[in-house]
Structure formats: C-alpha cells, structure tokens
Computed example of a mutant assay.
Amino acid sequence: MADANAAVEHGLDHEGAEITGAETAHTAGTEHHAEPLFLGFAPPVAVVSTSMIVLLAILVWKGVPKLVTGGLDSKIAEIKAQLAEAKTLRAEAEALRKEYADKIAGAEKDAVAMLDHARHEAEAIVAKAETDAVEVVARREKMAQDKIGAAEFAAITDLRNQAAAAAAAAARGLIAANHSAQADKALVDQAIAGI
C-alpha cells in the first residue's frame, strides 16, 4: 500500500505508467484496493466466464440443443398439422356453405315454381267454377222454363177441358130445350141424304 502511494506521488500508476496531474489528484484522495482472486490466481470475471463455457460444453455434450430443437420441431410439426386441419375444415365449411347456398337458391326457385303452379291451378279452378256456374244457371233456367211451359200447357189443357165440358153441358141444355124428337128425325134424315 505504501508502494502504491509512493508510485502515485512520483506520477506513476500501479503498472508503472505515467499518470497526469488530474489523475494524481484523484488517486491521491482515494485508496486503491486489491481485486479479490479465486484460489489466489484467477479474477472473478475469468472464473464466471470459464464456468459458463464449461456449462455450455456440458449442455452440448448431453444433447440439450438437440432436445430443444427436437421439441421446437415437434411444436412446429404440431402447428403445421393444426394449420393443415384448419385449412381442411375451412375447405369443408366453404363446401357446406356453397351446398347450402345452392339448396337455398333451389328452394327459392322451387317455391316460385310452386307459387306459379298454385296460381295457375287456382285460376283454372276459378274458370271451371265460373263455367260450371254458367252451366248450372243455364240448366236451372231451362228446367224453370220447362216447368213453366208444362204448367202453362197443363193450365191450357185444363181450361180447354173445362171449356169443352162447359160447352158440352151448354149444348146439351140447349139441345134438350130446343130439339124435340121431330127435329132430331129431320136432322137424321138430312144427314142420311147428304151421304
């Protein structure tokens, strides 16, 4: 320690190099401590560096990098498999979406076709009902006219019968009142003569 102070006083550092005046003032006020050594010969930096090198060498010797790369490779393979599965699932989902979109489009076309068919059938039913109604009305009209005609004929026939009966009764009464046996004889003779 005394040597170090003497060296600083002479303008030399502990390695024997000359130091400037500012460095002399700085080192003169502080005491210089010796760095601790491992087993008396190695500084701590060298010990730590050597132990790290030895540790890395043991890790390489035991195959830790291979284990790490193997683990990473297996993870990469697993991720690739998951990505492939995701692509497959996406393709399947796209196919299903397209299939259902086609089905929906087909169902819409079928619904439109069914509506058109139902509309045409309804129009045909309405037209047939109108035709049937006209035919029924015409038949009923004819039946009514036939009934009216039959009733008129029956009434006329009844009136004729009544008129004939009335005329016969009147003629009988007149004949009975106006004709005698002699008048009948003259009529019979006249009829015979006309033959």
Rank of each mutant, 00 (worst) to 15 (best):
Y100G: 01
E94Q: 14
K142N: 15
A166V: 14
E141S: 03
I148D: 14
D146E: 15
A171F: 06
G149A: 15
K128H: 14
A170L: 12
V134G: 00
G173Y: 01
R172T: 04
A166G: 14
A167V: 08
K80F: 12
I76N: 11
I148Y: 09
K98P: 00
K103V: 15
D116V: 07
T157V: 14
E78A: 11
A111E: 03
K75C: 13
H117N: 12
I104H: 01
Q162R: 08
Q162Y: 07
S74M: 11
L89Q: 03
A127V: 07
E135I: 04
E130V: 00
A169L: 13
T157A: 15
G173W: 04
Q82H: 07
D132L: 08
A105F: 02
Y100T: 02
L83G: 05
D158R: 04
I148A: 15
E99A: 15
V136Y: 07
A77G: 12
A167N: 07
A118S: 08
E141T: 07
A155S: 13
K128V: 02
R97G: 03
K80A: 13
D158E: 14
A171E: 02
A113C: 07
D146V: 14
K75G: 02
I104R: 02
E92W: 02
A163Y: 06
A84C: 06
A155K: 08
I79L: 09
K142F: 12
R139T: 07
D132P: 00
D73I: 03
E108M: 10
R97F: 06
E123I: 02
Y100E: 08
K147C: 13
I148P: 01
A164T: 03
K98M: 09
A101C: 04
E135S: 05
A81M: 10
K103R: 09
A86H: 07
I148G: 11
G71T: 00
A164I: 13
E94S: 15
V137E: 02
D116Q: 10
Q145C: 04
Q82R: 05
A155N: 09
L89M: 07
D110T: 06
A122T: 10
L89P: 00
G71L: 03
R90W: 01
K109V: 13
K75V: 13
A169G: 13
A169D: 15
Q145R: 05
A171N: 11
V126G: 02
A150Q: 11
E121D: 11
E130Y: 03
T88K: 02
D102W: 00
E152S: 13
L89N: 09
A95P: 01
L72Y: 12
V137K: 05
E85R: 06
S74R: 10
K142C: 05
L115G: 04
Q162G: 14
I125T: 04
Q145V: 11
E99Y: 07
A171I: 01
I156R: 07
A165Y: 06
A122D: 11
A138K: 14
A122I: 00
T88D: 04
I76Q: 12
R139P: 01
E99G: 03
G149V: 12
A86E: 12
K103A: 15
L72I: 13
A105M: 10
M114R: 04
R90C: 01
